[in-house]
Design a protein around this nucleic acid. Structure first.
Lengths: 148, 148
DNA sequence: TCTTATGTAACTCTACGCGTTACATTTGTC
DNA sequence: GACAAATGTAACGCGTAGAGTTACATAAGA
């Protein structure tokens, strides 16, 4: 199976930015929250910029902040922004076209893959960043504690 | 993303067995249709045996055949039989528990992942092997031609 | 006994994601 | 202008996983 944690980290990062409500957060601080390397975060931030979720500025005291309301960012959009491949992969080599099944199986599978992928994204679209953030607030009784 | 083509190949193999309607098919012939190595097929056949989709016998003239009607084999079952990992992966390292977001983001993500995975499988459950086979027949005007 | 086929181990090749270091560049501050 | 802080980005190493391949022991029918 595909096993990239980009989607998980992307939601995490955006949740932190939403939690900080417009304050600029550096890649180092985001990396400290995710527990990874700042460069990994910066690579991800580029994708989130392209998708229009965040703005990033260079220089001292700068960093990234949300450029869209958390209610306007669905998990499906985040998924599409950072996940390049589809969850399904077809044959690595072309099936034998002389076999009736091999001849048309890929076309059939493509339809199945497409509908499954659509169902997955529709489910993700039901949740947005604000909902995720709400859960964070529920679990976190002391929201003003120093986070890194 | 996860990118194993096991699911695609599994559907392909089962479709060939369904097409052959109970006739024993060797891993070599299945491999020829999929266009891969027989050992790759055999490894997959073991999973399909465990799932109860097929029976396999050794010896001359033997091979695998379906042990369940194509209408009784849904794509969701095939998916679960051969795909070990989930389409989503969480953080590679544990998030910073001192951060409010890091502290509870994984639990929230698990819920999201579970519902998305469920939606995906529900969509796959709408299709079964018989439907796939039907499409093959539609496309294939000469079903008795020599297939390998 | 011979042939055919599976089960399975062991190995290589390849691709990819993550992590890391390094550095040029930009931007704000003193 | 000098300095500090931050991003953008290249380059590399590491670990993992799937696919493909070879080889061989074992089973089963002819």
């Amino acid at each position: 199976m595909r096993t990239s944690c980009r989607f998980a980290v992307a939601v995490h990062v955006l949740a932190v930015l939403a939690y900080r409500e417009g304050e600029a957060v550096s890649s180092s601080r985001l990396a400290a929250s995710v527990n990874t390397n700042p460069v990994v975060i910066r690579r991800l931030l580029l994708l989130l910029q392209t998708a229009g979720f965040i703005e990033t500025r260079k220089g001292a005291g700068s960093g990234s902040r949300l450029s869209r309301e958390p209610t306007k960012i669905s998990l499906a959009e985040i998924y599409r922004a950072v996940e390049t491949d589809e969850p399904f992969a077809s044959h690595s080599k072309r099936p034998n076209q002389a076999c009736p099944v091999g001849h048309c199986i890929q076309a059939e599978l493509e339809k199945v893959f497409a509908s499954a992928e659509a169902a997955l994204q529709e489910e993700l679209a039901k949740t947005n960043l604000a909902k995720i953030l709400k859960s964070v607030h529920v679990y976190c009784s002391a929201p003003n504690k120093d986070l890194r």
